[in-house]
Write a protein that binds this DNA or RNA. Structure first.
Lengths: 210, 210
DNA sequence: TGTATATGTGGACGCTGTCCACATGACTCA
DNA sequence: TGAGTCATGTGGACAGCGTCCACATATACA
């Protein structure tokens, strides 16, 4: 069901692609039931494999969660890469669409978003894979803002500070709209987009005026 | 140890202030070991009470976590109230010091911060107490910004959008500095303050220029 | 072809959250 | 003061969990 390679195989003693199946089924169950409701054993059960099989692919439960989070970061990176090509000379649009995508993700897959950014996997004490992927996020923002500075779309203030302000606002806004901290936020995608645009405008003013 | 009332009591069958002791010991252990490492039973054990006693005060583990988060929000509110008095006619300073306080909290007590904002307690599906406290946060920002508009310190744009932009930036920055997503961030309080000031300036520009 | 290695299995252990029946002590009111 | 009620404590039980171990099976490579 999850991957073609898996489905194509006949039922054998060996699963064939358990590593990826665990990540995908884990993500599916994470989105459905939330972090506190999923267990390694149930994921294994849902895949149809013994409760110890996952330990051949992940040292422990935490490492599977890290792998799921890594996949989330990789998805973000892939989307940002598309934006980079689609709006090659328009850093402002790149920034906004990237923000919009993160906000949509926070609202469509809040449990994945919280896993990635809510401290449930430590970005300090985690495997190299997740470390690399999470820090690549920042690089992509630096890249966009740097391009914006070169094109004089943004002012020439400290690049790192601009990056931090931008990411902070985007991640914070995503968190707030998905966390339930706000009562009055409109819920249709169009309204959300309009709202985000207004909030984003305040940041842009700060990035532009010198 | 936790409260005077508790310490003053002689050892009896009844504890005397178990409700508050659970919250305080729970917070202490949360800060020490992290969310995933604490259990109701161990908290009870540390207090010196049977493993079922907590159920007389909280319906389940989740409700104790909610109570701990509520206390976190109440602390923020108390601090903001002090700022409101100390800098009565200076909304800009109120805003910055409030931000600085949240950032310090995110770095000093990251596990509490993550409990409050990381989706580990749902702000949708939680008790009235936590709902009230979490939404009061937003009210205090609205208040500051509204005052700023009246005093012409900030421009007259949509108040809610200004509030959202402000809170998003602050919460997002707090999250980023405490999560390990950043590698290069200076760690001493002074450096952190200087850094925050620069990032904050970008927001302020957006709030001021019309 | 035979054997090392990767990947699967089931059993065991201690811990957990939660339910239950029961014990104890504090408070109320005759 | 004394009886009874209610809030608050106790220990036992249970299923589910993460993880460790020894063992089984399939694959890859000599």
């Amino acid at each position: 069901m999850h991957t073609q390679t898996h489905q194509a195989r006949t039922k054998t003693y060996h699963h064939g692609d358990l590593h990826n199946s665990l990540i995908l089924k884990g993500l599916e169950m994470l989105n459905d039931r939330g972090l506190s409701a999923i267990s390694l054993r149930e994921i294994a059960r849902n895949i149809g494999v013994g409760h110890n099989a996952p330990y051949r692919h992940f040292k422990n439960k935490q490492q599977l969660l890290e792998a799921i989070a890594s996949m989330g970061f990789r998805r973000l990176k892939a989307y940002n890469l598309r934006l980079e090509l689609e709006y090659a000379n328009d850093p402002e649009t790149q920034l906004f669409e990237s923000a919009m995508h993160l906000i949509n993700m926070a609202n469509d897959e809040p449990n994945l978003f919280n896993l990635m950014f809510g401290g449930n996997v430590s970005l300090f004490d985690c495997g190299d894979e997740l470390k690399k992927e999470s820090q690549a996020s920042m690089q992509s923002f630096i890249k966009i803002l740097s391009q914006g500075q070169k094109q004089d779309v943004f002012n020439q203030d400290n690049l790192i500070c601009q990056t931090l302000a931008t990411m902070s606002l985007i991640y914070g806004f995503a968190m707030m709209t998905s966390s339930g901290m706000l009562q009055e936020i409109p819920k249709t995608p169009d309204q959300m987009r309009g709202f985000t645009l207004q909030v984003f405008d305040i940041l842009l003013t700060g990035l532009k005026k010198t």
